[in-house]
Computed example of a mutant assay.
Amino acid sequence: MQLVVGRIGRPHGLRGDVSVEVRTDDPDRRFAPGAALATDPASAGPLVVASRRWHSGVLLVRFEGVTDRDRAEELRGTTLVIDSADIPPTGDPDEFYDHQLIGLAVTTPDGERVGEVSDVLHHGQDLLVVRRGRDDVLVPFVKALVPVVDLERGLLVVDAPPGLLDPDESV
């Protein structure tokens, strides 16, 4: 399974640097000099990181062989991916990678299915995006609200207070 770790944005400067929209919780490791990244479309890569730096909160990356703005512009919109098999286990039974959570069925403690995890957001606090039909609900990923994550069974349990899973529900 391929995991998205970033998306190449606009060029920065004249020497081939590009901005990268980071989609990984470990950008220093994923974008370390020498790291090879597969691409989507595959014809754009693999790309090898030559250097990286943060500038005003934006990750700027230079890839080997990309030495000017024109070549950098050709890469705009390219998705950077890695193979999930290349990610080592966390070693902590209560810690999960995003790709392990996405796609899990979400149930209540009583076993009622309420949706599926469609994304994980990292905004100071991890938030599960639970797809409920055509709507999404954000659930803080904390033990008090998500007491069970069962990867083998493909589900997680959300013990939500009234109104969290159904915003239209009266509190």
Rank of each mutant, 00 (worst) to 15 (best):
V114C: 08
D110V: 03
R53F: 13
S118W: 07
E64A: 15
V171F: 10
K143A: 12
R131D: 00
G133A: 01
V171Q: 11
P89A: 10
D136T: 00
V157P: 00
V117S: 02
G16R: 01
K143V: 09
L60W: 13
L138E: 11
G154Q: 09
T24Q: 05
R132E: 10
D168P: 00
P161V: 06
S43V: 12
G91D: 01
R23C: 10
R76F: 06
L155Q: 13
P93G: 07
L151D: 00
A35I: 06
D40Q: 14
M1I: 04
G103P: 10
P41C: 11
D25H: 13
P162H: 06
G124S: 12
A38D: 14
E169D: 04
V81Q: 07
P89V: 08
L156V: 01
L164K: 01
D126V: 15
V114R: 15
G124T: 05
A72V: 00
P167H: 05
V142G: 02
V149P: 07
E112M: 13
R113G: 08
D98K: 14
G163Y: 01
R62D: 05
R10I: 12
L138F: 15
D168E: 15
S170F: 13
I87Y: 03
P27A: 13
L121G: 07
D126E: 15
T107D: 05
A72R: 02
P88I: 10
D26S: 11
R134F: 14
Q2P: 15
I8M: 06
P11Y: 11
A38Q: 13
L155G: 02
D159L: 06
M1V: 10
V148M: 04
A105E: 12
V81H: 02
D28F: 09
V129F: 02
D70P: 04
S43L: 12
F141H: 06
G77A: 11
V81F: 02
R113P: 02
G124Q: 08
